[in-house]
Design a protein around this nucleic acid. Structure first.
Lengths: 126, 126
DNA sequence: CTAACATACAACCAAATGGTTGTAGATCAG
DNA sequence: CTGATCTACAACCATTTGGTTGTATGTTAG
């Protein structure tokens, strides 16, 4: 299998590129379009009120973030979406939430200790 | 209850701000720090090799994205994280994955129709 | 072969970004 | 009160970003 050339750890720069790429409505729409159906760059471009070169640049930004790849087919360049990268970004945000939940749990522990000054081990009473 | 002034729909601009805010390692770290523990701006600033004003700006970017809020406490400004906003961003990415899954399902349907030419209902080609 | 099409890429521009320094107003400690 | 601390904000600068136009090159249709 030639599968799974997926980086397990993302560098700061890679994360910068991912979120940077997602921080533009046109690019999010291009990503959305190519998730729905793989299309050539010019085909994608017809949806937007801007020059073809501008669309090319947007696709390049998505590509640098590894959110899409391009594959040459004859004279056109087909844009493939990369759902794995999108999933990775979502999981990244989940990790932040995780921190929050840990903190809440910690606070909970402290409170339950504080309100039971003379208890044994864990024994969190109702 | 004064709770739930949470916008149900996010505008393009709001999403721009959220992902834009996340597209910088320093800001991600500030967010992370304030998820772990609520701290004043200057306290947060001591972690980074840049001026206090720069840190102030980063916090302002996170604030415009609604990822954090500030609360005045005496002479200092305490940075609170907003886990709900982070969750919303994660769900936003989930929605893209959803599109992908729908597409795969559609392709699956087409294939299963194609490979069962003599099924019930529409009873296509012999 | 020729014309139309899809792309690549360079040069340019305005605006946004990420940083700096400097100044000034509140607030707290002693 | 005085001085140290925390914050706000303006002005400035270099770089990046998002867009343009223009030119060149490869590819397909007729």
């Amino acid at each position: 299998m030639v599968v799974d050339q997926v980086p397990r750890e993302l560098s700061d720069d890679e994360i910068d590129r991912i979120f940077g790429a997602l921080a533009d409505a046109t690019r999010r729409d291009i990503l959305r379009q190519s998730l729905l159906r793989e299309q050539s760059v010019s085909e994608l471009g017809r949806n937007y009120a801007m020059s073809f070169a501008a669309v090319q640049k947007h696709v390049a930004v998505l590509e640098r973030a590894l959110l899409v790849t391009k594959e040459r087919r004859g004279r056109e360049q087909i844009v493939h979406s990369n759902p794995a990268a999108i999933r990775r970004a979502a999981r990244l945000l989940d990790a932040y939430e995780e921190l929050w939940r840990d903190r809440i749990a910690r606070i909970g522990d402290i409170l339950s200790e504080a309100t039971h000054p003379g208890n044994d081990q864990k024994d969190t009473a109702p």
